[in-house]
Write a protein that binds this DNA or RNA. Structure first.
Lengths: 217, 217, 217, 217
DNA sequence: TGTTAATCGAGACGGTACGTCCAGTCTTGAC
DNA sequence: GTCAAGACTGGACGTACCGTCTCGATTAACA
């Protein structure tokens, strides 16, 4: 991901002239304030004040606080995308799940994701920016890892890769957003093992095994 | 679950008698308005007006709109908890995942979950009510299913059941809250199969199999 | 004038319940601030702050700052209307002109009149309130004085009383609003004499005397 | 009045060349917009936009919108000054009052006078420009007329000419700015007659006639 | 004729106030 | 004695202008 190009930014011949300083200051202020007070109590007034920028300037470049926060989030995480290729699916998946867990596990970023997810339910522009800037690049990386593993014969050929991706990322999200239990490195390894190997007891006659599984014993 | 007893509800001597109509009307109004305008634009004023109740009455029984919505959510879903016991893990897990998908897939309820999840990040009372009224009962049912399967020898004995629960519920949440892809019955079945059986190719020499898996070949 | 009934005040069954304290405080604050900073720099924010009232309360009862100021003005001057009846037109007119001069000559009130006059050019509600609350009562008093004088035979019977009123009040306004020259009591007396007696030289053959005047020599 | 030389105009070496088009365009735009929206809603932004001139250019030549409007007003009326000398005071005064009434009676110009009068209350530069560019030339013309009439013996020698000027102009202002009654040519003639001849009934014993008047019967 | 400094348009900037909306508290009058 | 009705303070909203400030682009007078 070379450059975040937020959907809500108006483009024009003279856009470049706009104050880079103001732009950065707003994003930093938004991130800092978000950490202090959370999304609901975050106000554009406060962001503008902390960034020593006028409110009008904020509204000139972003349509609402969700958009500001989205860009702040994307800036904060954009360097973290990883396309590992160790030759081992297991290692690569652990790597990716851990990278995701690192972002979501950081209090500030995790809360941002929930907040943005909430807003995106009612804001298509936001949803699109979220998907394009955050979700899809990560899934693309995961898809790549899985694809290579299938080609190497490490994974079954008949997999629905999207479903596998959900199988890996879903539990990470769930743990870190509900925060019902911690998710450290060793848990992530257990999770990946579980996904790779399945959970059924070996050598046990299962009355209802699916075709793929049946052939395995 | 006989009765939802929301933590945030203040109790008083005459509460049960006088407020019954008002109480119900508020929850109905909140649910209806939420559907129309979403969480952010839902106002206590509007709820009170629609319920033909004074704002003071709303504040007498709930501390804020998140609490109102939480109770409305819990009322709306409480009949849906399922403790299936078909004798087959696969069937039971599909049943439970489908039950969850049904709730989250219903536009109104799914949005409520995200909204409440967002609010709960900064509101411990809310988080507790959410866990106690929604999340934990469902996990308990799932845990029960898994426990029985382990006892029957259908699942491996060394499993971390919490991690398995996350493995089942996580993907369902992910799909339905990000809405990147649909999740119908057949997808749910594929998901459960995938979890049960794992995804590694059979008979393929995996250089990095975990200990548990290694012993299986 | 028993009661000022500002046009912009919404009437309803529960209007009387509104906080008398807030109402008074707003008018006082508006008058005080007007004196300090003038009309253009008078802000509703400042009025609300000084009155220790929320901005919403101001806007609940008045549509804009001109309306607030109008009511403040009417409250400030309403006790000053005079219906003198000394038996002498001259005395009565001097009395009334002096009363007007006293209001307009007071820096704060004079400036209010100009400001309100300016706003009233583009605001019919305001113009009507201004006429009804300020201008017309005073003209009515003047009309009464003139009418009695005509009946007593002190003034010519063929006068256009409205024009006479303009002849008396006009110069007072002009002096006090342009402030080109002062207007003290003795000037007012000279003015009234001038109006009563005219300015033509006695016994001088005027080639163009009007009919009424001609018969006078 | 050869040339309007507004106090607020900054002069520079090459001003006359470059700015001519812009200068005129601004004044025209200001006048046109004033007519449309009135003083309060007239904005420099709008003036600049309509004149196809940058805001900076407006501020380069005028300190504020009042100054722009003042110059627009002076440009609009400067050709209207009249120094009539018909030999008859009555005719000359009617002429001058009518000339004033023509300006004030034109909706746009009348509103400008009120607006400028209002602003001038708190802006000495403006007040001075108003007096020098509008008020005083007209009064000078009136003073001249009165002076000649006194010299010819048509008016009493003991008059306070300033008070007489106020007596003529004041009513015209009052009528046209309050707009309580129209003021056409015949009304103006009646007004001048009234001022010249006075309003007291001839041959009526006035108990309180002033000295000048007493000697007249 | 080509250089250069003044002036221009465009419009972003930090501010201030606008007028609206809602949160959450409090008062009143009717039932 | 409760409740609806709704006024209240407080404070954020998003908008509109203010007056200042870069920017290039244009231009007119001088080199």
């Amino acid at each position: 991901m070379d450059k975040v190009e937020p959907v809500e930014r108006r483009r024009g011949p003279s856009m470049d002239r706009r104050s880079e300083r103001a732009h950065r200051a707003v994003l930093e202020a938004a991130a800092a304030l978000f950490e202090d007070v959370g999304y609901a109590r975050l106000t554009i007034d406060a962001v503008a004040a902390r960034a020593r920028v006028s409110k009008a300037t904020v509204y000139r470049w972003w349509p609402n606080k969700a958009a500001v926060l989205m860009e702040a989030f994307l800036v904060a995480i954009e360097r973290d995308v990883a396309f590992p290729d160790s030759g081992s699916v297991r290692t690569d998946l652990v790597e990716q799940a851990a990278s995701l867990a690192q972002v979501l596990g950081e209090r500030r970023l995790g809360m941002m994701v929930v907040a943005l997810l909430g807003e995106a339910q009612n804001d298509d522009d936001l949803a699109q920016a979220f998907r394009g800037g955050w979700q899809e690049p990560r899934r693309a990386a995961g898809r790549e890892v899985l694809h290579r593993a299938v080609e190497r014969g490490q994974l079954r050929a008949d997999l629905d890769l999207e479903l596998v991706l959900d199988g890996v990322y879903g539990p990470v999200y769930l743990r870190l957003l509900y925060r019902h239990l911690p998710l450290d490195r060793s848990e992530i390894e257990k999770l990946v093992d579980q996904i790779l190997d399945g959970i059924i007891a070996p050598n046990h006659p299962q009355g209802d095994l699916p075709s793929g599984a049946k052939s395995r014993t």
